[in-house]
Amino acid sequence: MLSSPLFWQLAIPVLLIVLGFLVGSGRERAHYRSILAREDAMRDLPIISIRRVPEDLPDLGPAPDTRMVRGNAVISVDYFKRFLAGLRMLFGGRVTTYESLVDRARREALLRMRQQARDLGARMIVNVRMETASISKGAGGAVGSIEVLAYGTAAIPAGGGRTS
């Protein structure tokens, strides 16, 4: 039975699905834990999509320094999720496995942008925008991995920020 090519043709995808399920879901849980912990630590650095720096913030003053900050992340799905999504494509409807993919990529990119702003001594990030690009297509045109870029303008108290 082990020498039959049909056996291997079935066994290899099944093994990859099991591997993807075991390793992939563990890694996703670990990533979410890390995202939640870092988001908690960043609560005091608000990010807004309004196009002006709010003028009533006491610690920013009337003329804060502004600098562009950005963060990006490329996240890929595991084999198991890709398989599930492939099934879902047959019936249509909500593809939860890809929902978590884009969610992780966005939150990670935002966190990296906030880290960069914090290193500059910023109090707020204004006019934040996000862009999503699917950079590599998997077999059959399925989404393999996506990139999210988040960028905005950090508002730093005049003279109070660090330079670099």
């Binding site: 996703e28 990533h31 990006n72 992340a73 595991d78 084999y79 991995s145 870029l149």
Partner: peptide, 23 residues
């Protein structure tokens, strides 16, 4: 390497860096 990483999912750091440098 990223092809292998595609099996288990997660961040593709090489691509993150590549795109970061390019921007």
């Amino acid at each position: 390497l990223s092809g292998l990483k595609n099996l288990v999912g997660g961040e593709l750091k090489a691509y993150t860096e590549l795109l970061g440098d390019a921007r």
